[in-house]
């Protein structure tokens, strides 16, 4: 367990970045591509939350941390909807 919060945040960001790159490089069967996209966008949301909480110190401002998390979550859902739109048309 990493005790330093900054080092923990950096480790999480590296792990999530490498994870999303690996997911994208993997040759997914056509039926799983949407799921992979969902994972990639979920990782992006998590990375944004880590930067806001730890690097920008919103962990000391729970009202704003929650507000940013919800707003970015809604935005990522919008991006996911637009990403999945061609399959629905």
């Amino acid at each position: 367990m990493i005790r330093n919060p900054l080092l923990r945040a950096w480790t999480a960001l590296i792990g999530l970045s490498l994870g999303s790159t690996l997911i994208s490089l993997w040759q997914w069967p056509p039926g799983f591509a949407a799921g992979a996209g969902m994972l990639v966008l979920s990782f992006a949301w998590l990375k944004a939350r880590v930067i806001l909480s730890s690097y920008l110190r919103l962990d000391a401002a729970p009202f704003w941390r929650r507000g940013f998390a919800i707003s970015l979550g809604v935005f990522c859902l919008l991006l996911l909807g637009l990403y999945l739109l061609p399959g629905l048309l």
Partner: peptide
Amino acid sequence: GAAFWHMVDLVWVILFPVIYLLR
């Protein structure tokens, strides 16, 4: 200054998957 830099970071962690990774 660091907050400006983190904003650049924040934009990239959303821009990177959308432009490069979503297939």
